[in-house]
C-alpha cells in the first residue's frame, strides 16, 4: 500500500509527460488522425546544417534586442526561409541609441505592424556582399523602402550614418552587423 501511494504520483507524472509529448509541436514523430499542431520552419530540428541568419542572430550576445524584436514581430519563421536574405543586424548598442520609450512602444503587441515595418526595412531579398555594394546604390528592402548605400574609402555607410562593422555569411544569406538602427523614410 505504501508503495502504491508512491507509485501513483509517479504514474500520474508519466501520463502527463506522455500526453504532453503527443501534443508536442514537432508531433510529426507519430501517426495521428489529426494534423500535428506544427510550428513553422523554425521548428525544424537540425544540428548539422550551416546556421541560418536567425540562428546566427540568436547565438550572438550583441543582438538580444534584435532577436527579441524579431520574435515580437512574428518574423521567426520568415528568417529561416530559403531566402536568400541580406540582413542588416543592429547591435544592442545600436538599439540603445534609440529613445527607450520608442523601443518599449515598438515592442508592444499593438505596435506589431510598425515593428515589422522597421525590421523588414533591415532585410533585402538577395545576397549582397559588402564588396558588391556600390556608392549611390539603392537597396529596395522587404518593406519596399530604399536603403541608400555610400562607399567611401572602402567603408560602407547606409543611409548616410550606419556603418557595417562585421559581416557573417549564413546558410540562407548574409548578415551585416550595423551600428545604427535603420529607420524607414516616412514617404
Amino acid at each position: 500500500m505504501k508503495h502504491l501511494f508512491q507509485i501513483i504520483p509517479i504514474a500520474g507524472l508519466l501520463v502527463l509527460i506522455c500526453a504532453c509529448n503527443q501534443a508536442a509541436p514537432s508531433g510529426a514523430d507519430s501517426a495521428a488522425a489529426t494534423p500535428a499542431a506544427t510550428v513553422g520552419q523554425s521548428g525544424v530540428k537540425d544540428d548539422v546544417s550551416q546556421q541560418n541568419v536567425l540562428q546566427i542572430a540568436m547565438g550572438s550576445k550583441d543582438h538580444t534586442t534584435l532577436v527579441a524584436a524579431v520574435k515580437a514581430a512574428g518574423l521567426v519563421d520568415v528568417l529561416v526561409n530559403a531566402g536568400p536574405f541580406t540582413v542588416f543586424a543592429p547591435t544592442d548598442a545600436a538599439f540603445a541609441k534609440l529613445p527607450k520609450e520608442t523601443l518599449d512602444n515598438l515592442m508592444k503587441p499593438e505596435n506589431k505592424a510598425a515593428l515589422s515595418n522597421i525590421l523588414e526595412y533591415h532585410v533585402y531579398v538577395g545576397v549582397i556582399k559588402k564588396e558588391q555594394m556600390r556608392d549611390g546604390q539603392k537597396l529596395n528592402q522587404v518593406n519596399l523602402k530604399n536603403v541608400v548605400v555610400a562607399v567611401k574609402d572602402g567603408d560602407v555607410l547606409l543611409n548616410g550614418s550606419a556603418h557595417i562593422v562585421a559581416s557573417v555569411p549564413a546558410s540562407n544569406g548574409i548578415i551585416h552587423v550595423v551600428d545604427e538602427v535603420l529607420l524607414p523614410p516616412e514617404k
Binding site: K2, L4, F5, Q6, I8, P9, I10, A11, G12, L13, V15, L16, C18, A19, C20, Q22, A23, T34, P35, A37
Partner: peptide, 26 residues
C-alpha cells in the same frame, strides 16, 4: 500519503483533460 495519492490522481486527471483540450485546440 493521502495528499500524494490525491496529487497523483490530479496529475492523471490533468493529463487526460489536456489530451481532450489538445484535440479541441486543433
Amino acid at each position: 500519503k493521502l495528499v500524494l495519492f490525491s496529487i497523483g490522481l490530479l496529475f492523471i486527471f490533468v493529463a487526460l483533460w489536456q489530451c481532450k483540450t489538445k484535440s479541441a485546440a486543433s
